[in-house]
Every structure is written in structure tokens, then in C-alpha cells.
Design a binder for these strands. Sequence first.
DNA 1: CGATTTTCTGCAAGCGTTTGCAATAAAATA
DNA 2: TATTTTATTGCAAACGCTTGCAGAAAATCG
Lengths: 342, 342
Amino acid sequence: MKRNKSSNEVTIKDVAKEAGVSYSTVSRVVNNKTYVNPDTRDRVLQAMLRLGYQVNLHARSLAGGQSNVIGLLVVDLTTQYMGEIISGIDDVLAAHQYELMLYTTHRRKAKESAYVHMMARGLADGLLISLPREPEAYLKSLRQKGFPYVIIDHRSEEPSDLFVSANNYQGGYDATNYLIELGHRRIGIVTGWMDMVSARDRLQGYQAALADAGLPFEAELLFQGDFSQPGGFNGGTCLLELAERPSAIFASNDISAMGVIEAARAKGLQVPRDLSVVGFDDIPTAALLSPQLTTVRQPLQEMGRSATKMLLDLLKNPEDTPESIIFPTELVVRETAVPPAE
Amino acid sequence: MKRNKSSNEVTIKDVAKEAGVSYSTVSRVVNNKTYVNPDTRDRVLQAMLRLGYQVNLHARSLAGGQSNVIGLLVVDLTTQYMGEIISGIDDVLAAHQYELMLYTTHRRKAKESAYVHMMARGLADGLLISLPREPEAYLKSLRQKGFPYVIIDHRSEEPSDLFVSANNYQGGYDATNYLIELGHRRIGIVTGWMDMVSARDRLQGYQAALADAGLPFEAELLFQGDFSQPGGFNGGTCLLELAERPSAIFASNDISAMGVIEAARAKGLQVPRDLSVVGFDDIPTAALLSPQLTTVRQPLQEMGRSATKMLLDLLKNPEDTPESIIFPTELVVRETAVPPAE
DNA sequence: CGATTTTCTGCAAGCGTTTGCAATAAAATA
DNA sequence: TATTTTATTGCAAACGCTTGCAGAAAATCG
């Protein structure tokens, strides 16, 4: 049943016959190995072209070669945040003839682990892990196996871990500080998932900026969000219902900033006149909102690209020890943050 | 070098030894085949658990089993449009223990073909193809091989092709007709890539609505866009610079609608006061803009889900002949379209 | 010019599975 | 009880490729 399909496929042996050489020679040509006579190579190449040969990745991988597949673990695909990162990853992968295998965890911690093991089992040559929730569960076994991986947007504490991240602390600091400089004194914050290092870093930046300006950190001005629009909406609503409501809110990502703005509108407040808002990420939509969102930019595409390059480099030279990267963030001043009303 | 890694892995044979059975028995247990003594099965299951066995997909696929991988061909990942569809796909795949292999063509036609062949070569069990550009190039060979695939958002003319699409014609008609009913008489259109059936269908819907209302179709009111924001911006700019400028514009997707709005603003015009705009897709952002975008909704997630179900069904029962689906579209009235000024 | 070295090619083993076939044991039937 | 059937297992042959090993041919050297 499946056999007849397969018999249809042209294999390395067919090419060998066509070119009048042994199949190992064909393999050498395909893999650009040394010690192949230029003439022979040409002949094989011709034969491959004629027959339309395509390597079977499964077989190659099984035989101990590379699978030319990179696994990517993501939480959620629907966000532009992720789209940007993936597009960076994809750029580099395409340039190096690698395939991308995608896995969405939907924040189910247990699944992450199972998937990672399967990947490491030979399905993929390396792994890109974005925004992991409980990485320690499986990272340890990857390390033991010496399986190459790079983490995206998560500043790992383990020194041997390779990661690419942005300076979330600084970003949080800058955003908050900007609001302070505009004259705001009561600044709320809607955080992200607090089990994520990046979210904690942004919060700490916020607190540090407050402290440096001699402003107190007030617990009632903090709302634990979840990087989602509804989360931002709830956060905004809560904060705006405080007896003494904040004149500005720092949302830990653009999506929740949009939620906050939504909440303000629902309360009949105008942004930025009645409430200043600063986001984080600078997703493409941020510039398209009206008013345009003031936010902290992290170079998402570039992060994806760097992580992938790093991983590919690691695959090529396993002895290499590239350095983790922390990209600087950049405050993008647009329209949603202005000096407070009075 | 790679060997030591592999030797680390627990294979079906290890499990067999641990359980005291032959490896073929283990395989039968793993694949839930009939004719395995319940006791034996238990013993094998135990052993698998103890050793932490994970099937090697490459080997399985090579040996003629399924790879449990579905290939997905997409143009571009950065759009929410695609994010929505993928999220639907992913839902279904996850529920059926399939992996997703992703391939982004970046609109390079040649690459599409190469990738499809590689997938069909055993890498994947089936293929999901979204927004193909020149599908005929490779679809033919897929058909010949009997390789299962489903097309997303492309109404194929080939009767044997399975596809999931939305009623783009009706959507275009409804959007235009709505504008006409509001009182607009000069209605511009920014199209998508005209080599895509969906874009052409939307345009035809637009023309039909015009005709039905006894309005002429004027070539100067048509701008060939490309489904992108800049494309929308250019289109908007052009149309608004006409001697007699339109009072409304139908943009062929939300992203370009945002571009059109941007263009209007750049010209000092207010939406919707000076220009009504209707989009297409209803991506999540559409509801978050201000003013909120009036648009035509197509059930993207559902389309992804249906296509995937269809494909999986086809894999399970190759004799089945599921029907292609054309989802109805729905006009979502929000704030960007109102009666014309005077 | 014989002896090395280097380049080139083929053979065969193996990667971890699935599966048809054969063998055996147990159950059902005559 | 003898004979079929049915259930349960194991063996071995693929699947398409990589790669170490060994020979053959060509190039280099003393």
C-alpha cells in the first residue's frame, strides 16, 4: 500500500544506476564530500537533475547524518510578537536549507517536556526554545545529551545555556523613567506572567526607576497580567478604579497596552489626555494604532535571527562556545504618553 | 561522534529486552496492533515507561509507517491572518498527535515546488497548502502520486482538489453593497495580489455589487494592491488624489485597510467622516483599532481547523472523498464606514 | 623505476522501525 | 480425541541513506 508509492520515488540507487556509479558515490556527491572526481560528480549531478532526485531526510537522519530540521518550541502562534521572531528564524533557516518543525505548547508545561524529548531523539538537529515556562524540567537532560539548543527571550541563569534576549530590565526602567520625566507621579503597571524572567525583569526595571526618582512602589498600582489583551483590559479597569487613580500605566507588552487603552475608553477616559500608556515589544500594530502606541522596542526579528545563527553555528562547530546575547531595548516615543493633565 | 549520542537512546530493542519479548512485539504494542496478549502488552508498557522510550519518527517513517508529520506551506508568517489559520491547524494536529512542519515561501514560486516534492518524498504524511501562487506546478505531481493535500483559502478549479475557503465573492459583494446602501456612489477598491483567486473573487464581488446598484465600474477607482500595509497606503494615496475622489474605499484585507486609513490621515482626512473604509478578514487587530474597523469576517481559525480535519480524515481513510468547503463570510459593522458627508 | 602517498570508488554494515511470514500455543469445533 | 481455527509471538527483510574499510588507480617521491 505505501510500498507502491515508495517504489515510485527515485532513490540514491536509481541515480547511481543512471550515472553508472555506485550509490555511495552518489551519496558523496550529494553531501559534497571530498574525494570525488570532478567528472564523476558532474555525471552524478546530471543524473540527479534528470531524475529529479530529492534526498529523503528520514533516511539520512536515520543513517546518522543530519536531519536538517530545527525544532521550535513556542507558546502561542497567534501573536505578532511570535510572528516576528519566527520570521527572523525562518530567514536564517531558509538560507541554510534547514526545515522548521513547529510545536505549540499552549502553555501546557507537561507537553513541553515530551516534545523536547522527541525532538532530541533525532527528529531535529537542534532546538530553539522560546519563552519556556519550566525549562529546567527538560533542559537538564538536553545538556546531558549534549543536544544543541538556544533559548529565545529568556535570560537563563544556567551559565552553560545559550540564549538571546533583550534587556527587559532596562526597557522597563526606560519606559517608567520616561513617564516620570513627563511628570507622572502615580504610575501603574500591568505585568506579564510572573513565572517568566522577562516579565519579572520588566517589573524590576519599573521598580528601580521609581526608586531612583524617589517615588514609592505601591502594591495597589501593580496588576498581575498575562501578556494578553483581556489581561490588559482587566488590569486597566482595576487600576483606573482605584480611589486615587494613576495618570499613567506601563503595560508589560503591547497587546496588554491595547487592553489598557480599551479599558480607559470604556471608562470614558481619553488616551493620552487622561491616561498615558507605554507598552513593550513594538509589534507592527503598535505604530498603526491611533493614537500610535509609545512603547519599548525589542528587536524581535533580529532576536530570532541571532538565535538561529547561533544554533546553526553550534551545529557546525560543536566545540564553539558562542556567547549569549542581550539586545538593548529602545524607547519608541509615539503618541500615547504625554505629561499629566494638571 | 553522533554514534555515542544515539547509543544513548533507548530503542525498541532495549524495551524488548527489558520486557523479555521480541522487538516486533514491542512495535505492535506501540502501534496498538491487534493480537497482543494483554499481559504482554502491560509488561511492554511498563518497560517503555521505565526506560522512557520515545519512538523515532525517522525510523518509523522509513520503515513504511507514518511520519506523523504534516507539512504546511505558507507565504508569510508575520501576519495575523496566517497566525489565526495556523492556530486552527495546530489545534487539530495537537489533538491527533501530529507534528507540524512549516515552510515559508516568501512568495518565491520556485521554492514552493522544491519543498512540496521533498515533503511528498516521505517527510510528511500530508500537506496543507495555504495561498499558493502557482500550485499547478506541483499539484499535478502530487495528484499523480496520490499524495494527500488540502488547500487553504484558494478555490481550486481542479475538481479533484480539496480546499477550504471562504466566500470571497460574497464578502466583496457585501462590503461594497453595504457602502452603497450607506449612500456612497464613488467607491474605490484596493485589491490584493491579482494572481490569487481569492483576490479576484473579492474584486468580482465588488464589481457585481456596483453593477447591481446600477453604478459604473471605473478603472481609475481600482488600485492593484498586494495585501500589505504599504500597498494599502499607496492605494489610498492614489485614490484620494483623484480629481473626483471616492467617498469610500473597500480594501481587500484588513492590513491594507489600515494602510488606506493611514493614507487618509496623511492627507488630513478623517475616517470615517471624510472617508469610509471597509476591510476584509477581521483579524483580531481590526477590533482594536480606533475607530474600529468595519470589515468582512472570514472564519480563519475554523478554516485552518477544517482543512486539517479534512486532511487527517483523508489519511485515515484514503478512500473517503470529503467535500471542499466554502465558508460564508460575514459583514462586521463597526466604526469606519458611515454615510457620506453631504 | 619501484615505493609511497594521495585520490577515487565500491562494498557492506548499520541506523530504528514496520510487517509479512512462519511457528507455536490455545481455543473451538467436529 | 483429532482437527481446525484463532490468538500470540519471533524472525528477517526491507525502508534510503551514511560511512568506515579496503581495493584500485593515479600522482608523487627518492
